[in-house]
Nucleic acid binder design. Sequence first.
DNA 1: CGTGGACTTGACCGATCTCAAAGAAAGTGG
DNA 2: CCACTTTCTTTGAGATCGGTCAAGTCCACG
Lengths: 217, 217
Amino acid sequence: MRIPNPTGGDVPALQRIATKARYGRNEMIFGEGDPADYTYKLVSGAVRLCKHMADGRRQIADFVLPGDYFGFAQIGEYSFSAEAVGEVVVLCYPQRQIEALGDENPGIRKQFTTILVKRLLDMQNHIVMLGRKTAKERLVSFLLMLADRSGTAGGIIDVPMSRQDIADYLGLTIETVCRVLSDMKRSRLIDLPNLHQVALRNIDALYALSDGTGEAA
Amino acid sequence: MRIPNPTGGDVPALQRIATKARYGRNEMIFGEGDPADYTYKLVSGAVRLCKHMADGRRQIADFVLPGDYFGFAQIGEYSFSAEAVGEVVVLCYPQRQIEALGDENPGIRKQFTTILVKRLLDMQNHIVMLGRKTAKERLVSFLLMLADRSGTAGGIIDVPMSRQDIADYLGLTIETVCRVLSDMKRSRLIDLPNLHQVALRNIDALYALSDGTGEAA
DNA sequence: CGTGGACTTGACCGATCTCAAAGAAAGTGG
DNA sequence: CCACTTTCTTTGAGATCGGTCAAGTCCACG
C-alpha cells in the first residue's frame, strides 16, 4: 500500500528550489510537445496525464495523486499533457536545477530512477488491463488501485475524476463506465453515496473479480 | 528510426562481464517472480516479454529485437517473463557486476536510464493503442513499429513472432489478426509473401491508417 | 508421404459502442 | 436565493466490431 506524502519533505535539497503553483479545473499544466522545463510534485487535488490522437480520441496514461511526481525524466519535451482534474496545487522544480542537484547528490537521481521503475510496473499492469480485461474487471481494478493509492483501503474512497476521465483511463466509453458501476451497485459490490465517492462493500469479492478469479457475475 | 546494434560494443566495460547463452523456440529465459539476477542483451532472434493472468490470459508487454536490453532495472524480481520466440542468442550481465560498474562509471547508469525512459515512451504508445485504436489501426501500428525498429522501413519486414504472439501483443484474438491481415492484403496495403514476412505496399496510406487519419476502409 | 501444429476462413454471438433522451448536479447572472 | 443554462451522468434501444466456435488449409518436419 502506498502512503501519500503530500508535504514533500523526502529530499530537503529539493525543497529549496521549489515554487508553488495553482491550477483550476481542466486547466492544462503542460501540453504534449512543450519543452520539458519543470518537474512537478502534486500537493493536492488530482492530475490526469493524457495522450490525444489526431482525431480527438483521448487516452489517459495515468492519474497523479497527492505526493506523486510527474513530468520528470522527459527528453527535451513532454510526451503527454498534464491537466488538472479539479483545483490543484503543485510544486515546480526547474529541470536544470534538478540536474545540478543530481550531480552533487546522487541520491536524488537514484530516487527518480526508483520512481521511474515503479511507474514502469504500473504501466505494465495498465497494459494488461487494456489488452486483456473485461469492462467489469477494469472498473474493479481501477477502484482497487484508487483504494490502494489513497491508503483508504477498505472503506469509502474518493474518486475525484469524472466518468469520462475514468472511461478514457480504462479504454471504455462513459456509458459503459456508468452501466458497470450501476451493475456493481445492484449486485451489492459497491455503493455510490455521491458522484465522487465509492464505498467498497466486499473487498474480497472485488479482488477476485479484478483478475478473473471468482464468479463471472 | 532506431538502428539495431547487435554487436553490443556501446559500453566496452560491459563486454568484459558478459556471458553468452542460447535458448530454443518458446523456451523461457526467466519467469515473472524469478530473482532478477541478470540483465540481458539480445544478440539474435526475438524475445517476448509477457504477463500471465491467473486464468491463463496472456498479454505481451513488449517484443525484444536484436540490440535491445531487457530484464534490467527490476527490483528484486522480474515483473514479467521473457520467452524466446525462435532460436535466440543473448548476452547475460550479472546484476551485481552492473551495479559495481555503475559505481565507478556513471555513464553506464545514465545509459540504462536513457533506455528506461525510451521504454516508457514506447509503453505510453502501447497504452494508447490498446485503449483507443481499432483492430486495423493496431495491426498497422504494429507493422510500422517493426519496420521502424528493424531499420528496414519501406520494404519487406521480418515478422519473427507467431500470429498468436501478435494477437497477445495487440490485445486481439488470433482470428482477428488473420482477418485484418487478409483484409489489408485484399486492399493492396500489404503483401504476405510468406508467414514471417510482410511487404508494405503503401507506406503513406499505412501511416495515415495507424492513427485514424485517412479513410476508414 | 503422413502427421501435427500453425494459420485461415466462415457463421454466429455477444460485449461494448453509438445514438438518443431524460435526469441530476453545478455554475451564472439577476 | 432563485431561475436559467450548461455540463455531467444515467438509462434505454439498437448497431457493430471483435470474439467464439468450428471447419478447412497450409506447411514444416519426420
